[in-house]
Nucleic acid binder design. Structure first.
Lengths: 134, 134
DNA sequence: GTTGACTTTGACATTGACGTCAAGGTCTAG
DNA sequence: CTAGACCTTGACGTCAATGTCAAAGTCAAC
């Protein structure tokens, strides 16, 4: 498939797909015309890239770990020890990020809940659902 | 205290503290000389800002929610309905972020574990701890 | 009052993952 | 073979929080 179809299938802009290639995350074949040609497995690859990017990994590290996730469920070992350490570091960073997010989530929940309590008292239109007077 | 001390106490650069003020997150008094003067509660405020920034909120929204977190544990209701909706949206976004992070965390764990299994078999020097042959 | 650390404003630089525009070549249905 | 949708590279713009540098004023200790 061409880049436009991959964009639709993966939900990622063509600009991003070209950027991923530039960063070495994708290696599409090329037609004589220069057109990029992708195959079905690239859809999954792009999805993995998105997950890792969303998790805060940079493209350098993603480029290294992608080969370890060849197929669905197939996991390979890191290709070198240095990378293994990077992965552990990154995983640790993620754990902290999750904690931070949960802390922030709790903050917002407190405020939102305070607001809902007010709204429930005044307008009685808020779908408070679960959660009494925490 | 002056900006340098707040920077030390909060672990945030003076550059950032000035930026936070510019964004309306801090409102230090000013001496006749122009020097910013902060008080102890600002240390906690800066910490809250860091948590929310780390969670992906932008300074615009943080500026709005900060007044809802006056003291330690004191939570006030949102100051307007529109903001309440923004908070819910943001909280939802956070939930998704947490899920993404957990997914990525699982990915890395799989790879790391595959590597540790190899290392344990070859060199038997990895402190594998818990986890046999999942 | 002098020194040296600290502060002020202002402005430009950086980072990373993109958006966007331009000028041109390619594909394919009809 | 032509229209029009799609693709190419290249370059510059963006956003958000910070780094960094410069020139100048301030504080506090001695």
């Amino acid at each position: 498939m061409f880049i436009g179809e991959l964009a639709k299938r993966s939900g990622v802009s063509t600009r991003s797909l070209r950027y991923y290639e530039q960063q070495g995350l994708l290696r599409p074949r090329r037609r004589a015309s220069g057109y990029r040609e992708y195959d079905d497995s690239d859809v999954a690859t792009v999805r993995r890239v998105r997950v890792l990017l969303a998790a805060g990994l940079n493209t350098d590290l993603i480029r290294e770990v992608l080969p370890c996730m060849a197929d669905e469920g197939t996991i390979l070992a890191p290709t070198c020890d240095e990378m293994a350490q990077d992965l552990r570091d990154e995983r640790e960073r993620m754990s902290r990020s999750i904690e931070q997010l949960q802390a922030a989530h709790a903050m917002l929940s407190s405020i939102i809940h305070a607001g809902e309590a007010l709204t429930a008292g005044a307008g009685a239109r808020a779908g408070a659902g679960a959660g009494g007077k925490a």
